[in-house]
């Protein structure tokens, strides 16, 4: 009876240790794996998303943008470089991206949605903005610093990654690469 109890208790302890170990391994997986792959030129498939629009009008999915070159910009209202970048992105959207049929999505992540809406209003952002509630998509893209921008080709493969604020020139070059990829 006592021996059986020992066996059960040892099994419980081993199971618990196994769970702890499994969680540790899961947590230790490289959170920056996706941008690293993009930087290496591997053209990884961009993680899918279907996120609510920041203005509350439905959702935007990556799947719906298939066939277009896509600029994905991860931002947050508390991020100072995002404040410098916002006018550049808005100008690029109005003068180059939208006229050329290039999709642009601003993904607000790790942020309060009310503050994000106030930010969008302050900077007069008119390109599609979505809110990544919970931050799962930001994590899937390995976003660790703000802002970060990815450029995807028409097949949804990531061809370029820019940690930090982008310029119109860098976007133009990445879009040219995505169009020819």
């Amino acid at each position: 009876m006592v021996k059986r109890l020992v066996v059960i208790a040892v099994a419980v302890v081993l199971l618990a240790l196994g769970i702890v170990l499994a969680r540790a391994v899961m947590n230790s997986t490289d959170s920056r794996a996706f941008p690293s792959e993009v930087a290496s030129g591997a053209l990884p498939q961009a993680p899918a998303f279907d996120l609510p629009n920041l203005d509350g009008s439905g959702t935007t999915s990556l799947a719906a943008l298939r066939g277009q070159v896509v600029v994905l910009n991860f931002w947050a209202s508390w991020c100072d470089p995002c404040k410098d970048e916002a006018p550049i992105l808005e100008d690029f959207w109005q003068t180059e991206a939208q006229p050329q049929g290039i999709a642009m999505v601003g993904i607000d992540t790790q942020d309060l949605s009310d503050d994000a809406r106030a930010f969008a209003k302050t900077y007069g952002l008119t390109y599609p903005l979505v809110h990544d509630a919970g931050g799962a998509i930001g994590r899937a893209y390995g976003v660790g610093a703000f802002p970060e921008t990815f450029v995807l080709d028409a097949q949804g493969r990531a061809v370029a990654w820019f940690p930090g604020a982008v310029t119109a020139k860098t976007l133009r070059e990445a879009i040219a690469k995505a169009s020819g990829a």
Binding site: V2, K3, L5, V6, A9, V12, A16, L17, I19, V20
Partner: peptide
Amino acid sequence: LVVWVVPAALVIGGVVVVVALTLIWRR
């Protein structure tokens, strides 16, 4: 829930092992 259950399981399992081994050795 895992974060709450696993430490509890470790403590309870550990106590049961110690008590049972003590009983076995005494017997």
